[in-house]
Structure formats: structure tokens, C-alpha cells
Design a protein around this nucleic acid. Structure first.
Lengths: 137, 137
DNA sequence: CAGGATCCGCACAGATACTG
DNA sequence: CAGTATCTGTGCGGATCCTG
């Protein structure tokens, strides 16, 4: 195939459930959120800069996700042919309109991350209680 | 293991990237969005009702996702022992607070679904143009 | 520098059958 | 009814090497 590999989120076998299930899957995808976030805050970025900002992403996933985002009209790719080739990525108006609701979601997770972790530890405690209280009298 | 299988979103090898990357992964997961959405709109629902509302979900994913959501304090499970066993699920205050930003995201996808599809078709057109214009003169 | 191509593990998720 | 247990495939995603 022409791209590094297959597309991200290609499968959409459950159109019947929610009509936007696949769109949610794309929009809520891990790297999508981080890339849109990066481009939304930093503005226009080159390939390498994105790779540095979005820590931990592999070249493959960066290229792949960017390609998918470009395909869906969320990101604009500007190729400047030069001796060292230069490619800039920026949000389209559509991509920028996604930034706000996405940031709201990110803000939520940042605020309630602690509460979730606390709930998780509390859950583990009760779950293992019946076992613990016999093994550790 | 005590649960049907392994947990959803168990791996989190990239804590270093964004501190909320895993939380985003959980919160943005396909079934999470649909279940929170269902419980947010319908209120308290039983297991079977959820399975009917969230069309296309398997018993496994329903149980698994609910378990994860309960573990993270987003969903409260109320078990009523009876002749036909009855289990109700509802959002916790934390879960309800997630509903708004999540709905904003869903609304965005519903509004811009068309624009994305259009961009996708336009993208395919230019991508295959060089091929098409020679094979179909 | 900005990707493309390929190999491959492993978690996600579906289908099915079985319990309390 | 409300789950659990198991077997299985599919494709996401990382690592590595290669090109214009």
C-alpha cells in the first residue's frame, strides 16, 4: 500500500450502534488527542518538532495519525521542497473547532485524575479485603 | 482471574508522554463514551437495558467496560438480590461531571461528521487523480 | 529531514458455551 | 437475569531498516 501501513481506525463494523461511533473512535484516539492538542497550542509545527512535543510517539504512528487527520480535513500539510525537506503541519478551521471540546475533555481528566486513582485504590481494597483478612490476620 | 478476562486499557507504558494519556484512553474509548452517554441520558439502567440501548455491544465488553468504569469511580453498581437477580447501573457524581465534556465532543462529531466525510472524499479524489486521468480518458 | 516498508507481539474485542 | 470462562482473529502499535 502507499502509506506506511494500513490506516488508523479503518474498521467500522458497528455503524448501526451510534452513527458517530467511528468518528468518536478517531477523535478520541490517544495520538489524535495529543497531536491536535500540540498543534492547537503551538500552532504550526514541523514533523520533527511534533515528534518532540508528542513525547513517546513513534515515527510510524506520527505519520499514520497525521495522514488520517489530513484525510479527514482536520490537519493541513504544507510541504516546502528544499535541500533539507521541510513539512509543516497545522490545524484547519475544522481541526481548530475540535480543539475546544477536546481540551475540555483533557481538562476534565487532569482535574479528576486524582479522584479516579483514589477510587481505584479504594476498589482494590474492598476487592481484596475478603482474601486479605484471612491471609493476614 | 476474577473478571471475564483482562482489564480494558491495562497497559500504560507511556506515562512520560502526557500524564493524562491513559485517562484519555479510558475516557475516549468507544464503549465508555456510549455507556456514559446512555447512563447520562437515561439515568439508572439495568444490565439488560444497557445492552439494548448500547446497540452492538457484546456481553463481554459491556461487563468489562462497566467493571472498569466502576473501578474508576465513574459508575455505581447496585446489586439487588432477588429471584431474578437485578443489577442497576448509574453515574456517580464524578461520572456525571464527565458527561458534559463528553457530550460536547459527541455533539462536535455529529455536527462535523459530514465535513469530515466530504474532506475524505475530496482527499481520495486528488490522491487517485493521477491514476484515474490516464485509465479513464 | 521527512517519511516509506516490513516484521511481529500483544491487547482488544467478538462469538460461544456455561453458571448462580 | 446477570454475569463468567475460554478460544480465537484482527489490527493497533512498536522497533528496525531503508529511501528521496
Amino acid at each position: 500500500m502507499s502509506v506506511t501501513n494500513k490506516r488508523v481506525r479503518t474498521k467500522q463494523p458497528l455503524e448501526n450502534s451510534c452513527p458517530a461511533a467511528d468518528a468518536i473512535a478517531l477523535v478520541g484516539a490517544k495520538w489524535t488527542v495529543l497531536i491536535i492538542g500540540a498543534l492547537g497550542k503551538e500552532g504550526k509545527l514541523r514533523y520533527k518538532e511534533l515528534q518532540r512535543v508528542v513525547v513517546g510517539i513513534s515515527q510510524r504512528m506520527l505519520t499514520l495519525t497525521l495522514k488520517t487527520l489530513e484525510e479527514n480535513g482536520l490537519v493541513k500539510r504544507t510541504l516546502t521542497p528544499a535541500v533539507p525537506p521541510r513539512t509543516d503541519y497545522e490545524l484547519t478551521p475544522l481541526g481548530r473547532s475540535l480543539f475546544d471540546p477536546l481540551e475540555a475533555l483533557v481538562d476534565w481528566t487532569l482535574e479528576n485524575r486524582g479522584a479516579m486513582e483514589e477510587a481505584r485504590r479504594a476498589y482494590v481494597k474492598v476487592a481484596t479485603k475478603s482474601l486479605v483478612e484471612e491471609k493476614v490476620p
